[in-house]
Write a protein that binds this DNA or RNA. Sequence first.
DNA 1: CGCTTGCTTGGAGCGCACTCCAAGGTTCTA
DNA 2: TAGAACCTTGGAGTGCGCTCCAAGCAAGCG
Lengths: 151, 151
Amino acid sequence: MRESTSARTDTCASAPTAHPRPEGQDRYTISEVVALSGLTAHTLRWYERIGLMPHVDRSHTGQRRFSNRDLDWLSFVGKLRLTGMPVAGMVRYAELVRQGEHTFAERQELLESTRRDVRSRIAELQGTLAVLDFKIDFYGGARTAPESERV
Amino acid sequence: MRESTSARTDTCASAPTAHPRPEGQDRYTISEVVALSGLTAHTLRWYERIGLMPHVDRSHTGQRRFSNRDLDWLSFVGKLRLTGMPVAGMVRYAELVRQGEHTFAERQELLESTRRDVRSRIAELQGTLAVLDFKIDFYGGARTAPESERV
DNA sequence: CGCTTGCTTGGAGCGCACTCCAAGGTTCTA
DNA sequence: TAGAACCTTGGAGTGCGCTCCAAGCAAGCG
């Protein structure tokens, strides 16, 4: 295993396993975080560069040491990513967090807007399900369809 | 209006209006199709180039004239696009259609696999809704949360 | 001590789905 | 019959979210 570990297998939708963490540990190397988060080391470093990660603690020689808190943050960011929020939006949220409690209202608005997006995306997907069901039934031999179709 | 018409406004999730078509017409210029489909002319030509559109009829001087059948196809392709299916998959489906009725089974499988993807994407989105609800409630002042959170 | 494996950086590259450009021919309105 | 608006093409460019590279330092084992 050499840096570009997992990934590439199946678009790796971040293993939905609830990030089982080794008990009583609070300093993880980057490769441990790769295993726990499903992200690549490249991506973790990139997240930090673009301001999507609070600055991670370092060992005396400069290597990253992630905390449980960092893992919590990554797990939340993973959820935001699943919503389809663009990276710029997540960075915006991270900035608000850094600015302290007086940004609570704005953070709430941002999440509410995201929630609206998610809900309409779900509705959209359910609309496609109706069409898929219809077509699949058609191909299923139940040619009840009034389709002149080239299908 | 000069080629790059609509687009850019809001990621233009293809107006969910059911493509109201002028009655009794069966030959549309590309700009009419732009208005009806919400796609750009660039995208329509590109779809044809990559084999996602059956070859469109032409006027005697070589300009495209789309039929109602073409619009039906575009509308279905729009649904597939909303499912999140990559363009390569849609091209694959278009190829199967071109090959005739003996590909019915394969088309059905492709759509069934797409339907599975859509269902799991919906589940994923519903999972993010739970997290969003939780956070939004937290910011809503109901600080009932046992969060040590940097939130 | 040497060896292997792992971590560091800035910057370049990639795949997807468009998106646009230049240069020229066509169609419509007045 | 002019002029504006619209259409054509191949190929180059864009934005997003990673993804990879080269060169070099660090850590652990025998």
